[in-house]
């Protein structure tokens, strides 16, 4: 499980780097093309919005793995380490159940989007839409891995998180 999650993490990092770098270059190039060459890149804004979608779901998945997404912990923090672990396990179980539902819905949604093309570039919309199920699938694996690790730690005698 750890290996799979780590392997996905490296893929996500590479995708993330490519996305943010190309987004910056595309938008900056669009300004240059408009002023210097007087020829706007008509697909620049749509393409960058699609890159933003991929960046969000891939980055969101990484953020869940690293636990860097904002959460309210001041109540949970009042409990002992064991108490906290119980809260964490309950949270992960709730999240995974709903995540599974969301995954089902989003795959269904992507497969039913065959009629749609983007408004400007006219590429099929499943290309940007796929970011949702792919990102959520990766996130699901990371979260499951975090949960498994929580149980493992307990067996090892409960180290504080």
């Amino acid at each position: 499980m750890n290996t799979l999650s780590g392997w996905i993490e490296s893929i996500e990092k590479v995708i993330a780097m490519i996305l943010i770098a190309s987004m910056t270059i595309v938008i900056a190039a669009a300004v240059l093309f408009r002023y210097l060459l007087n020829a706007p890149i008509f697909w620049a804004s749509e393409a960058s919005i699609f890159m933003m979608a991929w960046l969000t779901f891939i980055g969101g998945s990484l953020g869940l793995k690293y636990k860097s997404q904002a959460s309210v912990t001041f109540l949970v923090d009042r409990f002992s380490d064991n108490g906290k672990r119980v809260f964490e396990i309950v949270s992960y179980v709730i999240i995974l159940i709903f995540m599974a539902l969301l995954l089902y819905l989003s795959y269904q949604w992507v497969f039913s989007s065959s009629h749609q093309k983007s408004t400007s570039m006219r590429i099929p919309m499943w290309i940007p839409y796929l970011s949702v199920p792919v990102g959520l699938t990766f996130a699901f694996i990371h979260l499951l891995n975090n949960l498994v690790n929580l149980f493992k730690k307990k067996q090892q005698g409960g180290e504080p998180l």
Partner: peptide
């Protein structure tokens, strides 16, 4: 670059 993406997503995933 990776930090930027992860930090962006803490905001944009919330928007989603």
């Amino acid at each position: 670059l990776v930090n930027t993406v992860v930090n962006t997503a803490t905001i944009s995933f919330l928007i989603v």
